[in-house]
Design a protein around this nucleic acid. Structure first.
Lengths: 238, 238
DNA sequence: CCCAGAATGTAGACACTGTAAACATTGCAT
DNA sequence: ATGCAATGTTTACAGTGTCTACATTCTGGG
């Protein structure tokens, strides 16, 4: 009977907002209102992902440590290793969540539209807006933090990923004769580069002079996607 | 007389290639062929920058530690603090070196051309090529590793920086009637986003299918800058 | 219902990191 | 020559990623 009554004051940092992905539809696990110090967390895995995102958002990337993440989730420093092999594995989970959420937001913004060009506008704007609204996810998704190659994000049930959405938008535009014909890949790469570059510049605060709010970003994204599509039109000049 | 003869075997890791920036024109400091264990390094500051870049290139960003950098430069782990207040300050030096080098490479590639469009092509291609050829610098320049805002890169002697080069190229094109008129900033942002996005996608290995070599990158950059300029032409359709 | 094993969380340890303070060595200007 | 400023070294400390051994809880088959 070594060390009986000890450390009774843990588990106070539970309860986090379900920010992204899997919105609301966690199994059954969480949140009986009394957080009485139960040994098992319920859904520690997701709690760690959420804590990591929050930590990056609040303190920046340099402050991201597994131990602090564990602290915020209300568990000891070794507990994360029951769910992630690695610090990098945790980041991979964040990235996957980001990829799923980005594709979802793109689909949602595209859904109301039927015209190929309007759908392409929507896709591009959603791409940029996702980055602006979720910088930690975007940074993890595309940042330099992975040594081993990241496993591909799981796309559940035939839902199209972000890149696939762009490609099919472009090809639809070509099929309708609204974009210049030929190989779709160069055009896709142009579109992808444009929105990715704009998003990156926003997230990395390189747009010092320009206003920084999300609504300003939306306006800029709108202008830029219009300019882009203008450039991808069939060269009907005479 | 505490600890007299000790640690005679340091200073074996001297001599590094002068990779970027300040090419060759270091004061007088370095490289008397005998590296006999002199106490003072000669140009430790630059050696640390070089070592950091090499380390990132070889082992990835996660492996970057001040202590390993110091080890590679052949000094003890505290020596860097005589030259940099911080780990972040060292990274800032890397970024500055990168900004200077990128602007230089852009200027060099633009120099042979006089036509505004050709100069714009050259600027864009050089931007992408810099990223492909110097991924560590590019990552540090635009990565998420700075908590405090980075001090602006020093632009010696009226030399134009990378962004300034882009802006003036665009405005020259407008003045010549080769690009659509009006506010130059949206067009500049389009161009910048395009090349920055392409560069980022390359550096972060998101272009899995496409070939990865530097020559492939050059070809892609060429195609994309042509497409871009095509899109920025005056809308003379009719 | 019970209880054995599987899941999950904890405690402790180790090597490594960033950073600071005190000290040692060297170069330079007077 | 000498004293000071610049530069490099030692030592120390808290925080980190990860491993191993241990404790607690959950779950399903008798």
């Amino acid at each position: 009977m070594r060390r009986v009554l000890k450390s009774r004051g843990r588990h106070q940092a539970r309860e986090e907002a379900r920010t992204l992905a899997t919105r609301g539809k966690r199994k059954q696990a969480a949140e009986a209102p009394e957080d009485k110090g139960r040994y098992h967390h319920g859904d520690l895995r997701q709690a760690l992902v959420d804590a990591a995102v929050a930590l990056i958002a609040e303190e920046g990337f340099g402050a991201l440590s597994l131990r602090e993440v564990a602290r915020r989730a209300g568990v000891t420093h070794a507990a994360p290793y029951r769910h992630f092999a690695d610090k990098e594995a945790l980041l991979e989970a964040v990235a996957h969540e980001g990829f799923r959420a980005m594709a979802r937001e793109m689909r949602e913004r595209m859904a109301p539209h039927t015209g190929p060009l309007e759908r392409l506008y929507a896709a591009g704007e959603a791409y940029v807006l996702f980055a602006v609204r979720h910088p930690p996810h975007f940074r993890v998704m595309f940042g330099p933090h992975f040594t081993r190659p990241m496993s591909p994000p799981p796309e559940p049930e035939g839902e199209q990923g972000a890149f696939t959405l762009l490609v099919s938008s472009i090809e639809a535009g070509q099929a309708a004769g609204l974009l210049r014909p030929g190989e779709s890949r160069p055009l896709t790469l142009t579109a992808w580069s444009l929105v990715h570059g704009l998003a990156s510049l926003f997230v990395d605060r390189q747009l010092g002079e320009s206003p920084q709010g999300a609504e300003a970003a939306e306006a800029l994204a709108r202008v830029q996607t219009r300019l882009l599509v203008e450039g991808l039109r069939p060269p009907a000049r005479g």
